[in-house]
Every structure is written in structure tokens, then in C-alpha cells.
């Protein structure tokens, strides 16, 4: 319930400040350019890739997720509203959850906007919509997970730029872990790293049209653990005033 109230404020914040629109326009511009490029390449030679836009977003989120979350706690601290939030009869986890749901809802909205590409494809060819849906569900969960990683760093540092930078570095590492096999000659080590990577639960399953329970569990688990850690960080900061 209290999460719902925080969520409403958060989504209102996204929708009333130009920042979110700039990010949204940038994402749409990026996906739009790559979508057209792919259309030109595959024109009359191969079927459309239904997972194209989700796959682009899977990389784009490495940079966009920290931008979306960097102000989340840093701004509250700068304005002092954090003190009010933490003295309201609300648990940290509720605040964190509400903020996360707000950012995730914004991301969902963005995903719905990219649905235009599927509409275009339906009009010019017959794309595998099941495959596309799987990729979209995958990127939806994936995006949620990247947002929570960004939130941890937003809670951790006072500085927005530092939060965004650290978030990007962390997500980049999580993204690159997919390529661990190229780095580690020991396959068991490589597998562990790949299991930890975000791509490892997206590129070969959701993005290929296969939904696996363990991948859902992975993203849900990342979301749960990161939100919990964020709440713990907020609570621990009480001790230091």
C-alpha cells in the first residue's frame, strides 16, 4: 500500500520532468536507427528477427538503467526528503519497492512504445509473434534487473554521476560476463560467470523464443536481492546519521 503511494509519486516524477522524455526519445532513436538498418539488410534475403529490438535494449539498458535510477536516492538526499521518507511510518523496503516499480513502469511504457516495430513488421511480413513475445517478456524482466542494480549504487553514493558511472560499470561487467568463456580457459569457471551474467539468461533463451523457468527465477532473484540490499543500505545509513 505504501509502496503504491511511493510508486505513484515516482511515476508522476518520471512523467512530469523532461529528463525521462529525453531518455525515452534517445532509446527510440537508437532502436529506430538499428531497426531500419536491419530492415535494409534483411530485405528480401531473410525473415525479420523478432528479437531484434529487445536484443538492442539488452545492451542499451547497460547505459540507460543507471541514468534512470541515479537520481532516485541521491536527489532525495540532496533535497532532504530522504529524512522525511525515513521518518514516515513506512518500511525501507516499501520505499525501495515503490521506487523500483515506478522506474519499471516507466521502462514498461518505453517497451510498449517499441511495439511500433512489431506493428510495422506485421504489416510488411509475418513475424514470429510468439518469439517476439518471449523476447519482450525477457527484456522486461532483464530491464527490471538492471534497474535494481542501478538502484543499489544510487543508494550507495550521494553523487548522481558517481552512482550512474558505478552502475554502468557494474552492468557492463554483468553484461560482459556472458563472454567469460573467451576469458577463462576453465569451462566451469566460465559457466559460473556466465550464469551470473544477464545476457546468459536472455540471449540464448528468451531472445531465441524459449522461455525457461530458471531464467525467470534468475531475474526475479536479482530483483529481489538487489531491492533487499538497497533497503539494507538505506537502513544502515541511519546508523551514520
Amino acid at each position: 500500500m505504501t509502496s503504491w503511494i511511493v510508486f505513484r509519486r515516482e511515476i508522476a516524477q518520471f512523467l512530469t520532468t523532461p529528463f525521462a522524455y529525453v531518455i525515452g526519445a534517445a532509446v527510440l532513436l537508437l532502436t529506430g536507427i538499428l531497426f531500419n538498418r536491419d530492415l535494409n539488410i534483411s530485405f528480401s534475403t531473410k525473415p525479420a528477427d523478432p528479437a531484434l529490438v529487445p536484443s538492442i535494449l539488452s545492451f542499451a539498458m547497460v547505459f540507460f538503467a543507471p541514468l534512470l535510477t541515479m537520481r532516485m536516492f541521491a536527489e532525495e538526499r540532496r533535497e532532504g526528503t530522504m529524512e522525511l521518507l525515513l521518518t514516515a511510518p513506512v518500511r525501507e523496503l516499501s520505499i525501495v519497492l515503490g521506487k523500483f516499480l515506478g522506474a519499471w513502469a516507466y521502462f514498461t511504457l518505453l517497451l510498449l512504445f517499441t511495439g511500433i516495430y512489431q506493428i510495422i513488421l506485421v504489416n510488411i511480413t509475418a513475424p514470429d509473434l510468439g518469439h517476439a513475445l518471449s523476447a519482450y517478456i525477457g527484456i522486461w524482466l532483464y530491464g527490471g534487473a538492471t534497474l535494481t542494480v542501478g538502484m543499489v549504487f544510487s543508494a550507495l553514493t550521494e553523487n548522481q554521476i558517481v552512482a550512474a558511472f558505478l552502475g554502468m560499470v557494474a552492468l557492463m561487467l554483468l553484461w560482459l560476463a556472458d563472454q567469460a568463456g573467451q576469458l577463462f580457459s576453465n569451462i566451469d569457471v566460465a559457466i559460473i560467470f556466465r550464469t551470473m551474467s544477464l545476457q546468459g539468461h536472455f540471449s540464448t533463451s528468451f531472445a531465441s523464443g524459449l522461455m525457461r523457468a530458471e531464467d525467470v527465477a534468475f531475474f526475479a532473484g536479482i530483483i529481489a536481492v538487489m531491492l533487499f540490499i538497497t533497503a539494507q543500505i538505506l537502513e544502515s545509513q541511519r546508523w551514520h546519521g
Binding site: 522524455y21 532513436l29 529506430g32 531500419n36 530492415l39 525479420a48 511500433i116 510488411i124 511480413t125 514470429d128
Partner: peptide
């Protein structure tokens, strides 16, 4: 899955919608 076949006009329209119209509108 069938291949993609579109006319050049359609292609231009798609490019306009996705690259110019959508981001600008947002």
C-alpha cells in the same frame, strides 16, 4: 517464416516514423 518485401516508399515511410516521428513526438 516469410521474407520481408517492401517498396522503397514503404521503407522511407517506416524510416520516417521510427527515426524521426517517434523520438520527436516523445
Amino acid at each position: 517464416l516469410p521474407l520481408i518485401f517492401v517498396s522503397q516508399q514503404q521503407m522511407d515511410l517506416i524510416a520516417f516514423i521510427t527515426i524521426i516521428f517517434m523520438p520527436t513526438a516523445v
